[in-house]
Write a protein that binds this DNA or RNA. Sequence first.
DNA 1: CCATTAAATTCAA
DNA 2: TTGAATTTAATGG
Length: 250
Amino acid sequence: MTKSVNILDQNSRKVIRDFSCASCNNKSCLIKKNLNNLTSIDFVENKKTLKCKKGQQFIIEGASVNGLFFILKGTVKVFRTGINGREQIVRFAKEGEIIGHRGFGTEEYYSIGAIALEDAVLCYFSKEQLQRVLLENPMFSYDMMLFYANELNRSESKVKSISQMTVRERVIDTLLYIHRKFGDLRSFLNLPLSRKEYADYAGTTEEQVIRVFSALKKEGLITTKGKKIAIHNLQLLKNEISEHNYFLDS
DNA sequence: CCATTAAATTCAA
DNA sequence: TTGAATTTAATGG
C-alpha cells in the first residue's frame, strides 16, 4: 500500500494526474462519448474535479442541488435514509456513471446521499452549464434521455423485487446484480461490500444476509473469504430467481 | 434484537 | 513487515 495521495488507475497502475475529459478513457461516460459533438468545449474545460477519499460522503440528503456528478474513477453507493434511520441503498455506481441526476431540473434538494466505497475522482458540472449544453446538443440530450429511461426501468423492477421476493431471493438477486455490474476479479466479486451493505441493498438485515450466505455456502453455491465472495454456480443462482425474471444491467 | 466468539482488516512502529 | 487494536462476520439465545 502506498501512502500517496494521488489516485491510482487500477488498469495501468499509473498515477492519474490529468483529469481532463480529453484524456479520460471512460467509454461509458456520456460526456466523453459526445465530446466531439459538443458545441461548446468550454463546458468541459470548466468542470470541477474533486477527489474523494474512501468512506467520504459527497452528497448529503437534503442539500441543495447545484449540478451533476460524473464518476471519473472509483465506486460509489447511493442511498436514502428511512424514517427509522435505516439505510436503503438505491444503487452502486462505477466510473462513467452519473450521480445525483434525479434532482436535476425540478428538484431543489437531494433526496439521496452518496458516499465513496473507495478512493474516487468525481467530475462536477453546474446545473447552468449542463442546461445550456443539453439545449445546444441534441445527441447528448438524447443519450441523457436514454439514460433516464433506463434508470426508471431499473427502479421500477427494483420495487417489484423488494415487494415480491423472499429474503433469500433478494440476497441472491443482489449477488447477481453485483456480479453482472462489477464482474469477477480472480474469481471473487470485484467489489468488496460488507454484509450490512448487501442487506441495505436487498432490503433486509445484516443477520439475514449472513444466514443466507451461510446456507449458500453449505449448498456449495458460493464461498467467502472476509468481504470477498466467490460465486461457484451462477446458473443455479439464476434459476432460483428466474420466475421473478431479473432485469439487466446497471 | 443483543451478546459472544472468531476472523479479518487497519494502522503505526 | 508484524502484531496489537479495531472492525466485521457468524451463530445462538
